[in-house]
Design a binder for these strands. Structure first.
Length: 713
DNA sequence: GGCACGTCACACCG
DNA sequence: CCGGTGTGACGTGC
C-alpha cells in the first residue's frame, strides 16, 4: 500500500509527488499556516506502561514500591505534585488522559486543528523524565542537584520556538542550527509539549529516551541524504532531545545511574549525555560539587576513556586515564596540562575516594569509522602522577581500579571479540555449527547450565518454504536504477514503494518500522551492492544457541548489535490455517500477532520534527495471513524466546514476490544489544483471537521484566 | 585530515 | 546577591 496518498497537506506538494515523506518534513512549525497534523491518528509520544494495560495479577508483581517522581532539582515544585500523582497511578492501570490531566491528543488530532499545531501537544505535565536519586541507599555521597558552579541547572524548553522548517527544507543550503531558546525554565516547565509519560521503571525510561534519540537520528540521516544539508544527525537529534527535555536522570550524581546497566553500549557521546551517564557532550571528565560531611568538594563523577591510551589488554580492571587539556586548537602552542576543572576534580576524587563511572570507548568493529562506548561500572582512583608525553608536554595520569563485586562489562565485550577471532577459544561448545555451513557464519551450540546435549531434532534451513512455488506468486515490482539505488532519486520505483525514501541508512540500519519494507529484488537493475538489499543477504552476526536456566534454549550473539540492525529471518514452513488447527500445539509457530507497546513505538521520533507518526497502534494493527512453522525445519530464529521487554522486533519485508500477505518476517534490533545478551522479541498478545476456544495458546511468561504481561501467545 | 558543531561551566555584567 | 548572558574549553563525527 502506498501511503503517499494519505499525506498531501499542501498544494505545492504536487511537484514532489514521488517523495511524500520528504514533503512532510519542512512543515514544522507549519510556515504556511497549514495544519499538517490533522492526519494524526495516534498520540505523539504517549507512553503507556505495558503493565498498566494488564492490571492485577501480573502487572507489578515484582515491582518494588512504586516510586514517585519529582522533576529535576527543586525548581519545578509547582508541577511536581501533579506529576507524582500521574506517575504513581500505575497499580490501577491507567487512562492516560485522565491520569495526567492532559487532553487526549489522539482525540484532538483526529479533527482539524489550525494554525499552531504544536500547541496540540502541549500538556500541563512536563515531559521531563528524571528520576529521584535519593533512593540510592548504597550511595555514601548523596549527589546534590547542582552543577559544579553551585547553581541549579536550568532546563529551558520550548520546542515550538525552533524553526525546523529551515533545517529540513530543501531550499536550505547548509541547514539551520537548532538553538536552545533562552526562555526561563518556568515558562518551559509549563509549556512542555510532549507527554512522554514514563513508567516508574528507570530502565524503561532510559530505553525510551535512547530509542527516541535513535529514531530521530536515523530520520535526520535519511533527510540529510536527500538534501544538501549539513551532516551530524547525532547532534541534531541530541539538540531536539535536550530542547524538549526528553532525557533521563537530569542532575548529576556520584555512583550508579538508575536505568543504566554495566555493559550497556552506546554509539554516540550524545547518548551518554541524554541518559545522565556523562553530561558533557565533548569533554572526557564529568564532575560536580558534592558534599563530604560538612565540606564541599568538586569531584569527578564519570570519565569517558576514548581508548587512545589503551593499556594492558588483559587487565580490564585497571585503567590509566590521562588528564584533559594541553592540546591546542588552531596550531597554537601546546602547553602543559593545568590542574584545573576536570583534572582538579580527578585529583580531588583521589583524596575523597569517591567512585567514578567509567565509559570505555573502542573502535567499532562493525563500522570502520565508528566508535562504540561501553559502560563499565564504578572505579576509584588509586594513584596519580605527572608524565611527559611524546609531544613534550606535561600531562596528568590517573590510575583507576574497578570496584570489586560488579558484573563484567568490558570484560565480556573483550572476551566475545576474542571468540570471533578464534572460535575455538569459546569453551563448552556442544556443536560448532548448527547450520552445517549453510549460514554465512557458524552458529555454535552452547550449554553451560546443565548436561542437556542440545535441542530436539529439526532440520536447519536458511530459506522459507512456501506451500506454492515462487514462480506462481504475484511478481515483484522492480526498479531500473543503474549500479545502486540512490536516496532522493525520484525515478527509483523501490524507493517509491517505501514511501519515497530508501528504508535503510547507508550503514544498513533500518530507519523506520513500517507495515512493509520493499527491498530491491533479483529483477531490479541495481547491483547486489545496492543499499536497499539488507535482509536478503542473510545473517552477518556470530550467533550462539545456548541453554537458558529456565526457558529452554535461547539465542544470543558474540557481536554487539546496533539498534536497527538486521538480525535474522524467521525461517520455516509457511502453513495454511487449516493445517495449523489440525496440528494443534506448535511452539514454533510464528504469527503476526500484535506486539506490545515497545515494539509498536519504535519510530517514536518523527512527531518531534512535525512528521506524521508511522506507528501502528494496537487498535489499528492488522495481522497478516502468513503463518510460519519452524517445528520441523527452521533456523536460529526458532530459538528466540519471548520477552515483554524485548530487544528485537519483527518487520515484514518483500523482495522476491509481490504477495504482501506472505512477506518475509525479518528481525531487527530494537535497541543496541551488548554481546552475549539474550535476543528476545515480543510474541504478541493473545488478544481476542484466541481468548475463546483456542485459548490454550496462552503461555505463562518467564521473561522476568518488571512490566511482564504474565503470558504471551 | 580538516572542518563545523553543541554543551557546559564559569566569568562577567547590570 | 541575584539572574541573565557572553565566551572559552572540550573532542567528536563525518
Amino acid at each position: 500500500m502506498n501511503q503517499a496518498s494519505n499525506f498531501m497537506p499542501t498544494p505545492d506538494q504536487d511537484v514532489l509527488e514521488v517523495k511524500p515523506l520528504r514533503t512532510l518534513a519542512p512543515m514544522f512549525p507549519a510556515p504556511l499556516g497549514v495544519n499538517v497534523f490533522n492526519q494524526l491518528t495516534t498520540s505523539p509520544l504517549v507512553f503507556v506502561a505495558p503493565a498498566g494495560q494488564f492490571p492485577g495479577v501480573f502487572g507489578n508483581s515484582n515491582h518494588p514500591a512504586v516510586r514517585s517522581f519529582s522533576a529535576f532539582g527543586d525548581q519545578d515544585k509547582a508541577i511536581s505534585g501533579g506529576q507524582t500523582a500521574a506517575f504513581s497511578d500505575q497499580e490501577t492501570g491507567r487512562d492516560e488522559s485522565a491520569a495526567n490531566g492532559t487532553p487526549n491528543i489522539g482525540a484532538n488530532a483526529t479533527g482539524p486543528i489550525d494554525a499552531t499545531p504544536m500547541s496540540a501537544y502541549k500538556s500541563t505535565q512536563p515531559s521531563v523524565i528524571s528520576l529521584d536519586n535519593d533512593d540510592n541507599d548504597d550511595e555514601p555521597y548523596a549527589g546534590n542537584q547542582t552543577s559544579a558552579s553551585g547553581r541549579n541547572i536550568k532546563r529551558p524548553s520550548h520546542l515550538s520556538e525552533y524553526n525546523m522548517s529551515d533545517s529540513l527544507g530543501s531550499d536550505s543550503s547548509n541547514g539551520t542550527k537548532i538553538k536552545r531558546p533562552k526562555s526561563s525554565y518556568k515558562t518551559a516547565a509549563a509549556d512542555n509539549e510532549l507527554s512522554l509519560t514514563p513508567s516508574s521503571n528507570p530502565r524503561e525510561i532510559v530505553e525510551v529516551v535512547l530509542m527516541t534519540f535513535e529514531a530521530l537520528r536515523r530520520r535526520h540521516l535519511q533527510l540529510d541524504e536527500t538534501q544538501e544539508t549539513s551532516k551530524r544527525a547525532d547532534l541534531k537529534a541530541g539538540a531536539i532531545m535536550m530542547a524538549s527535555n526528553l532525557r533521563a536522570n537530569i542532575g548529576k550524581r556520584i555512583g550508579t545511574v538508575p536505568g543504566v546497566e554495566i555493559g550497556d553500549i552506546f554509539y554516540f557521546r550524545m547518548e551518554l549525555c541524554i541518559i545522565g551517564l556523562h553530561a558533557p557532550s565533548m569533554g572526557g571528565i564529568d564532575y560536580m560539587n558534592a558534599k563530604f560531611g560538612d565540606e564541599d568538594d568538586s569531584v569527578a563523577i564519570c570519565i569517558v576513556a576514548a581508548g587512545v591510551y589503551e593499556n594492558d589488554d588483559d587487565d580490564t580492571d585497571t585503567l590509566v586515564y590521562s588528564g584533559s587539556g594541553g592540546i591546542s586548537r588552531n596550531n597554537e602552542e601546546r602547553h602543559d596540562q593545568k590542574l584545573e576543572r576536570g583534572n582538579l576534580a580527578l585529583e580531588r576524587s583521589l583524596s575523597r575516594k569517591n567512585v567514578i563511572r567509567v565509559v570505555r570507548g573502542y573502535k567499532d568493529p562493525a563500522c570502520l569509522t565508528g566508535k562504540v562506548y561501553i559502560y563499565d561500572g564504578l572505579y576509584k582512583i588509586h594513584e596519580s602522577w605527572k608524565e611527559k608525553t611524546k609531544t613534550g608536554i606535561n600531562c596528568f595520569k590517573y590510575k583507576l581500579q574497578r570496584e570489586p563485586g560488579q558484573p563484567d562489562g568490558v570484560a565480556i565485550w573483550k572476551m566475545s571479540q576474542r571468540w570471533m577471532e578464534n572460535p575455538s577459544a569459546r569453551g563448552r561448545v556442544l556443536h560448532p555449527d548448527l547450520s552445517s555451513g549453510t549460514e554465512n557464519l557458524p552458529v555454535c551450540l552452547i550449554n553451560d547450565v546443565n548436561s542437556e546435549k542440545g535441542p530436539g531434532h529439526f532440520t536447519y534451513i536458511t530459506q522459507v518454504k512456501y506451500f506454492k512455488p515462487l514462480s506462481s506468486m504475484k511478481p515483484f515490482q522492480s526498479c531500473r536504477c543503474l549500479s545502486v539505488c540512490l536516496p532522493g532519486d525520484p525515478s527509483c520505483v523501490c524507493a517509491h514503494h517505501n514511501g519515497g525514501d530508501l528504508p535503510y541508512s547507508s550503514s544498513g540500519l533500518l530507519v523506520c518500522r513500517k507495515p512493509m519494507i520493499y527491498e530491491c529484488s533479483e529483477s531490479c537493475q541495481c547491483s547486489f551492492n545496492c543499499r536497499n538489499r539488507v535482509s536478503q543477504k542473510g545473517v552477518r552476526i556470530h550467533f550462539e544457541v545456548f541453554r537458558t536456566t529456565n526457558r529452554g534454549w535461547g539465542l544470543r550473539s558474540w557481536d554487539a548489535i546496533r539498534g536497527g540492525s538486521f538480525i535474522c529471518e524467521y525461517v520455516g514452513e509457511v502453513v495454511d490455517d487449516t493445517k495449523v488447527n489440525l496440528d494443534g500445539e506448535d511452539d514454533y509457530l510464528f504469527r503476526t500477532v500484535c506486539p506490545g507497546e515497545k515494539t509498536l513505538k519504535w519510530n517514536y521520533g518523527p512527531e518531534l520534527i512535525g512528521e506524521q507518526s508511522i506507528n501502528i497502534s494496537a487498535d489499528t494493527f492488522e495481522p497478516l495471513p502468513i503463518k510460519i512453522s519452524a517445528k520441523k525445519m527452521g533456523n536460529i530464529s526458532r530459538f528466540m524466546n519471548h520477552s515483554c521487554t524485548p530487544n528485537v522486533f519483527w518487520q515484514p519485508v518483500q523482495f522476491d514476490h509481490g504477495e504482501d500477505g506472505y512477506p518475509h518476517i525479518m528481525f531487527f534490533a530494537l535497541k543496541h544489544i551488548p554481546p552475549m545478551t539474550e535476543l528476545t522479541y515480543d510474541y504478541g498478545d493473545i488478544g481476542a483471537e484466541f481468548s475463546g476456544v483456542g485459548s490454550n495458546r496462552a503461555k505463562n511468561c518467564l521473561c522476568g521484566s518488571s512490566n511482564c504481561r504474565g503470558y504471551f501467545s
